[in-house]
Computed example of a mutant assay.
Amino acid sequence: MGTRRKVGIAGAVVGAASAGAAVATLAKRYAVGRIRLRPDLEASEPFGELRGQPVVLTTSDGVSIQAEVDGVEDAPLTVVLCHGYCLSSDSWHYQRRDLRDTHRLVLWDQRCHGASARAHADDCTIDRLGEDLALVLQELVPGPCVLVGHSMGGMTIMALAERRPELFGDKVRGVSLIATSAGKLAEVTLGLPALVSRMVHIAIPSAVSVMRRRGALVDRGREAGTDLSFLALRHFAFGDAKNVSPTLVDFVESMIRGTPSEVIADFYPALMSHDKLTALDVLNKVPTAIIVGDRDWLTPVDHSRAIAAAVPTAQLTTVPDTSHMVQLERPDLVNEALRELLKRAERGNG
């Protein structure tokens, strides 16, 4: 397979390859233009503008981690928010907005994401993220806390549970796992027909290799394909694609586009090999809330059900007509579940 073709596949995998034909390009621009003309209730929402007190932490392998402390300093519980793959702490916009008046919040950009520094490819693992989270708790959380993780952030919490189970029940009083998985992500079909899904899984390793070796070239292709990115993200990340805010889609797309291709490639093997199902028993010691959209193609409902089976004390909430970005698409229901979890954690109820 030639380099040009590989680069094209790499761009498509991250949802940002250019059109390739003038007619297709015009069709996409027309479709996106019509979408943007619709009423947008979130057009004035200050996505990415909410800020707390910045803090920089340095990991044991020398990576600078950007974090923020926000909310009520003397609150009885700290809520630690762990974001997902290709996102940043800004993806917790609605949770920060709604919880900062009642709780102390710690938000952090996982290594290589957001404002945090890049790490060597060998250190882009889920276990390493779990160690980073332990550092965040040690340095920024003096009292009890509740951990909330979306997608890869949920996997980070699982890695912490495996490596530091003694923290759960004392330091960690509650956990929420949102749109995440304990393993077998390599088997996810993305909602595609079986044959197409197999073709995609065959193509991805070559695409990832190109992204790692020729990231700058792939990133230029991503910049050229923003209309395609918008349409693909709207379809895969949001359950109610017809009614989702274009401003919200743009906000999520900007976080993904801001993640270098090399970083996407470096973390991809860790996600595909992630397997922490046997580590989940420790979560039975604390109140646990599992939240997933019923149209999530990336971490399907069955993955959350598998987590719930391993943590029978957990409460599973399936959000209708919602996909992977459930905390942004249906913040009302997610925040309601989080507030209930926080109440249980404050009472010490499992």
Score class of each variant (00 low, 15 high):
residue 270 A to T: 01
residue 265 A to M: 00
residue 264 I to W: 13
residue 308 A to S: 11
residue 4 R to F: 06
residue 101 D to G: 12
residue 44 S to W: 09
residue 322 T to A: 12
residue 44 S to A: 15
residue 147 L to N: 00
residue 242 K to W: 09
residue 206 S to Y: 04
residue 9 I to T: 06
residue 81 L to N: 05
residue 328 L to H: 10
residue 217 L to K: 11
residue 292 V to H: 05
residue 246 P to H: 13
residue 191 G to K: 09
residue 107 L to C: 06
residue 277 L to D: 03
residue 61 D to Q: 09
residue 324 H to A: 12
residue 305 R to L: 06
residue 265 A to F: 02
residue 291 I to H: 06
residue 108 W to C: 03
residue 327 Q to Y: 09
residue 211 M to R: 04
residue 59 T to V: 06
residue 168 F to H: 05
residue 2 G to L: 00
residue 223 E to V: 00
residue 149 G to C: 04
residue 7 V to Y: 05
residue 330 R to A: 14
residue 139 E to G: 02
residue 326 V to T: 14
residue 127 D to W: 02
residue 72 V to Y: 08
residue 338 L to Q: 09
residue 142 P to W: 03
residue 90 D to Q: 13
residue 234 R to Q: 14
residue 104 R to L: 04
residue 108 W to H: 09
residue 212 R to C: 03
residue 17 A to G: 13
residue 22 A to R: 15
residue 71 G to P: 11
residue 324 H to K: 10
residue 73 E to G: 05
residue 339 R to A: 11
residue 59 T to W: 04
residue 51 R to Q: 13
residue 184 K to A: 15
residue 72 V to A: 01
residue 127 D to H: 10
residue 259 T to H: 11
residue 145 C to H: 09
residue 100 R to E: 03
residue 29 R to N: 12
residue 265 A to Y: 00
residue 254 S to L: 03
residue 142 P to F: 00
residue 343 K to G: 13
residue 148 V to K: 00
residue 75 A to H: 05
residue 20 G to V: 10
residue 180 T to R: 12
residue 39 P to H: 10
residue 189 T to A: 13
residue 160 L to S: 09
residue 261 S to H: 03
residue 204 I to N: 01
residue 143 G to Q: 07
residue 270 A to D: 05
residue 168 F to K: 02
residue 137 L to R: 03
residue 57 L to I: 02
residue 229 S to Q: 15
residue 277 L to E: 09
residue 248 L to D: 06
residue 191 G to V: 11
residue 169 G to Q: 03
residue 157 I to P: 08
residue 227 D to A: 14
residue 143 G to S: 06
residue 65 I to W: 05
residue 69 V to I: 07
residue 116 S to I: 02
residue 149 G to I: 06
residue 1 M to S: 15
residue 9 I to H: 01
residue 53 Q to D: 09
residue 239 G to H: 11
residue 21 A to R: 12
residue 72 V to T: 04
residue 156 T to C: 12
residue 104 R to V: 03
residue 211 M to H: 07
residue 267 F to K: 02
